[in-house]
Nucleic acid binder design. Sequence first.
DNA 1: TGCTGTGAAGTGATTCACAGCA
DNA 2: TGCTGTGAATCACTTCACAGCA
Lengths: 229, 229
Amino acid sequence: MTDREAQHGERALPEATLERLTVYLRALEAAQQAGERTVSSETLASAAGANPAILRKDLSLLGGSFGRRGVGYDVAGLADHIGATLGLKERWRVAIVGAGNLGRALAGFSGFRGHGFELIAILDRSPAVIGRPVAGLRVRPAEDLESIVAAEAVNMAVLAVPNAAAQSVCNELVAAGIRNILNFAPVVLQAPADVNIRQVDMSRELQILAYYAHQGVGHQDAVPPLAPE
Amino acid sequence: MTDREAQHGERALPEATLERLTVYLRALEAAQQAGERTVSSETLASAAGANPAILRKDLSLLGGSFGRRGVGYDVAGLADHIGATLGLKERWRVAIVGAGNLGRALAGFSGFRGHGFELIAILDRSPAVIGRPVAGLRVRPAEDLESIVAAEAVNMAVLAVPNAAAQSVCNELVAAGIRNILNFAPVVLQAPADVNIRQVDMSRELQILAYYAHQGVGHQDAVPPLAPE
DNA sequence: TGCTGTGAAGTGATTCACAGCA
DNA sequence: TGCTGTGAATCACTTCACAGCA
């Protein structure tokens, strides 16, 4: 039994399943927009670039039963259930640390609004950007981190600072009580085990792309159908 | 036997191994900067947030033998070998499509220079940004994509366009002969099987982070050592 | 009849444990 | 003696195949 299971009794979902769930969710939302009421595992899987078998298996891990045999899945109900499973019904109050090019671009990123995520603050150390308006907020001084986190009940942070600063800012975040960090710096952060850290690493992806390109063979994250015309 | 093996005779490296290799490479470069000549699997693994056993297994998959028993790995030699394996000795001529906030931020991103990656062009559809200077280049019209790809021998593209445009731009890239695409739009791209596509998906990471946070238990991509100070 | 839900089988990745070499 | 390299064992994920329900 892992630590997480020990604390839960319930087994955590596999990482791979979680990644696919986010894609199913997007596909369901698109279907909903398009006015679909139900989808088959076949249809949904193909929209998500996955195969029907693993989609059904993934959904079975969620517990409950959101499909009807012979019919398919209820689009709205399933989207709702996946959202709840992922914790998107909670309110995530996010601070971006680092208001350089990347931080500012992320502040404007659409994936932020909705799904429970709310951009609360954007911080930077440099006087040159403090006070500057970004995505409807003003850049605030990084040294006020602790008080901002407390006052605004920030519970998630996005790290968009230069590599050299990443670990020390991470330490400050942890000290301020943040337990959920999305890190864009290509640096392995050291943190206590109860801190959730996820990495978005563009150079990693670039290098893996180079590998497959170098091998001279096609590769895709999830095997999709054939060519666009 | 998979398609790739069929075309190679040699088995492709597992995805998970590739991801770690990029991290080992960074750790080796840091060690090199610090003047280290050799590292043990213990040291290198800890710097990379991995465990020694899997590090040794990963390296054994590379073929060759870059460690010396009783001593450790030659830092420079191993870095070189990993780089060669990943295809970083080739010249990757990259075009960024989309010169919005994200595209411009990516253009300035450090992970681009070095390791064989060279930013050749940045394109956009909007007359408002065409001609604007970005990272030492000028934004060029997206409609010239095909001729730019041909004239500049572009062999890799970064997609940083709005979601709604992503698939059609992807089609254009494929038509222009690009076979390697790094996609930042949270959209499942459909493309022929010989096109390499990798996804960088910030909202996916945010949602997975929410899941672990929601579960109320610590989680990290690779289990690192304990607390900072 | 059609499509979901799920045990069982198959495949792949990680960890263990130790032989082998400097 | 110390640390790598690797077969063997374990663990995790995916796919198969079909029972079960609308």
